[in-house]
Design a protein around this nucleic acid. Structure first.
Lengths: 253, 253
DNA sequence: GCCGTGGCTTGATCCGGATCAAGGGCCCTG
DNA sequence: CAGGGCCCTTGATCCGGATCAAGCCACGGC
């Protein structure tokens, strides 16, 4: 069993693992699904796309998928598991940049510098599809659908990067964070209201630019207000509408 | 005269306007210079690149280059002047996302949503090169140099977006902001130590997630410490090394 | 079993920067 | 010229969240 059961009193949700051995299911939920579908399954171009993919893993919790400074050769789609990306600044302080769920893509910010500007660390046992970037670029030049898909992926990440920017209260940040996670799980076919937080309170705090104690306090408050149920890393969103309302200023529409 | 002289006691630096009527100079400093050079000046491909460019402007201070929700058709390179991009959240609060100097590109974050997710507002009289994005994509498919240039532009912006994220003191943010502005001016061939702040204190504050009063106080403190000289919007960086040191945790290398 | 460690929670205190408030300078317009 | 608006600066006060501190629990190693 890959995910340790916390023996909490909340019922276990289905494990958010796309790679259930069913290739088609993973591909449906993968970030490149759009490109593949545009090409048309079964067409020879799809085979080309799949040829440049290499399955890698498992990476155990705490292991690096790539490190700051590694030469950039490929981007990675999360096949199963969860990853955090983080930078370590000159004072040695860690800075969590993002969390990536099954179907999402990491490494795009390395294209320009040609070296990874951050570390990618598995938060639980994780598997990936590795796309050689030179091969991908070459394919993109011949397949407009792939090219525009890459543009869209990049542009999309630009949009989400500017989200955590604003100055917002701890409650707003936390509510938006949980709502966003739920939506992303839902978009990949998992439950959007009940899931495991695969990262520690410290990682959440770092990502949201809060102290770990504040994260703890806000979660407790949300629980007392009946917005969520939380026990260790098991999370149940009891009142998605209200939660979203609290975080509305950070959330799209 | 395009830029109003503030009649300050600081000597006027050369106006940061790339478009001095000298086409070649602008192109040397433009964000697409890399792509053009890769193609090779004088080659027929360069003509194609230039054919899809349309010069637009002038936009006067306060005028919109595009607005939130406008359908995305093109990206814009700043030819001269300065632009801020900003979002207005559901509570009506403005959120400054960035400032763009001559040679820089705006609109990349609109590719994915296919509509501009933010406003772009001229801070002074400004001119632009407008690149039709469909045409650009088509060209990119035929010219690998253009494609990779677009990838790099997008990826670069991803990197800078994660800069303003961290939790840093007002001094660090301000020092990093001024250093970064200087570097960007220097990269386009202007003075990196003496220039005009084309945005108000309020815009700087909003961008750095500070109060306008704090921006004012920090600037005064920097002046008292001999780091800078500032009078209205005229800025002179007296001690670039120390300033950079204060902002080091936000700055690359 | 015992102990050490790391993640989590909760309480008490402190501080950086927001907010409130007041005043000055500049520019525009009538 | 007066009046009004905007931008900027500086001072006084306040507050949200950081920091410090203590204790709990689950887990792993010995």
């Amino acid at each position: 069993m890959r995910l340790e059961n916390q023996a909490g009193r909340l019922p276990e949700p289905p494990s958010p693992i796309a790679d259930d051995g069913d290739e088609a299911h993973f591909c449906r939920t993968c970030a490149f699904a759009g490109a593949c579908q545009a090409v048309g399954y079964g067409k020879p171009e799809l085979r080309e796309l799949h040829c440049l993919v290499e399955h890698v893993g498992p990476f155990r919790a705490g292991e690096h998928v790539f490190r700051t400074g590694n030469p950039f050769r490929a981007i990675f789609a999360v096949r199963s598991g969860t990853v955090k990306t983080s930078m370590v600044d000159k004072e040695g302080r860690e800075q969590v940049l993002g969390f990536y769920l099954p179907g999402e893509v990491i490494g795009l910010n390395a294209i320009y510098p040609e070296h990874f500007p951050c570390d990618a660390i598995a938060l639980e046992t994780s598997y990936f599809c590795r796309f050689s970037f030179p091969a991908m670029s070459a394919l993109a030049a011949r397949m407009p659908a792939v090219q525009s898909h890459l543009f869209r992926l990049l542009s999309k990440e630009l949009g989400s990067a500017s989200l955590l920017a604003g100055d917002h209260s701890a409650d707003e940040r936390m509510a938006a964070f949980l709502t966003d996670l739920g939506q992303r799980y839902a978009a990949r076919g998992f439950s959007g209201t009940q899931f495991q937080l695969s990262m520690s309170r410290g990682d959440i705090a770092n990502y949201l630019r809060l102290a770990a104690e504040t994260v703890s306090r806000v979660l407790s408050r949300f629980r007392n207000q009946g917005l969520i149920e939380v026990e260790g890393r098991q999370l149940l969103i009891r009142d998605p509408a209200s939660l979203r309302h609290v975080g509305r200023s950070l959330l799209p529409d």
